[in-house]
């Protein structure tokens, strides 16, 4: 497949994930927490497609997510691309036959992402983020992303077909 074909698939996949997050899951709250599949899919993209392509996908998903909240614009994108890059790098260091890499790294990456968001938000002057409820937020978001990590990995394997340099889509 040509590089433009991959990017076309990436655009379609990002559109689908965005639609699911902002339309289908918009009203869903688990213990008062809204699932954040934009972060989860960004992490899965980096695990499957490699840190470079994955963090670009995570960045785009983060920017799209930032359009619909009133927190600093770009903050979710910053956190998503950083965590995705880290997850992709860890995945690359594990080798090719690691069955649990996707769910484990998605879970841990999602937890880290929520905590990092609160930390950077606090540095930017947002009050009340480092609260005990942050643990609940991180756990709920991470668990939900763990559940969706399998279908998200399938989607990302379709996007990052084996010809992509540095990917683990095969």
């Amino acid at each position: 497949m040509t590089p433009s074909g991959h990017w076309l698939r990436a655009v379609l996949a990002i559109g689908l994930v965005f639609w699911v997050h902002e339309a289908l899951l918009r009203g869903l709250r688990i213990d008062g927490v809204r699932p954040d599949i934009m972060l989860g899919v960004g992490i899965v993209a980096a695990i499957v497609g490699g840190p470079e392509l994955g963090c670009v996908v995570a960045f785009v998903l983060g920017v799209l997510g930032d359009l619909f909240v009133d927190t600093p614009f770009g903050l979710s994108a910053l956190v998503a691309c950083s965590v995705a890059f880290l997850a992709g790098t860890v995945r690359a260091s594990l080798g090719t036959h690691t069955r649990w890499a996707v769910p484990t790294l998605t879970f841990l990456g999602s937890m880290l992402g929520e905590v990092l968001w609160a930390l950077v938000g606090t540095v930017l002057g947002l009050p009340g983020l480092l609260h005990p409820h942050l643990v609940t937020i991180a756990l709920v978001v991470a668990t939900f992303n763990l559940v969706i990590s399998a279908p998200a990995a399938l989607l990302m394997r379709w996007v990052f077909a084996p010809s992509v340099e540095g990917s683990y889509a095969a």
């Binding site: 490699g50 840190p51 470079e52 963090c55 670009v56 960045f59 983060g62 920017v63 930032d66 600093p72 614009f73 770009g74 903050l75 994108a77 910053l78 691309c81 950083s82 890059f85 992709g88 790098t89 930017l124 540095g166």
Partner: peptide, 20 residues
């Protein structure tokens, strides 16, 4: 990949600065 990450972080920080 590190260059890409740095580029995206700079883009994010630019967006945050514009918003703030």
């Amino acid at each position: 990949p590190r260059f890409t990450l740095v580029l995206l972080i700079l883009a994010s920080l630019t967006l945050i600065t514009i918003d703030l």
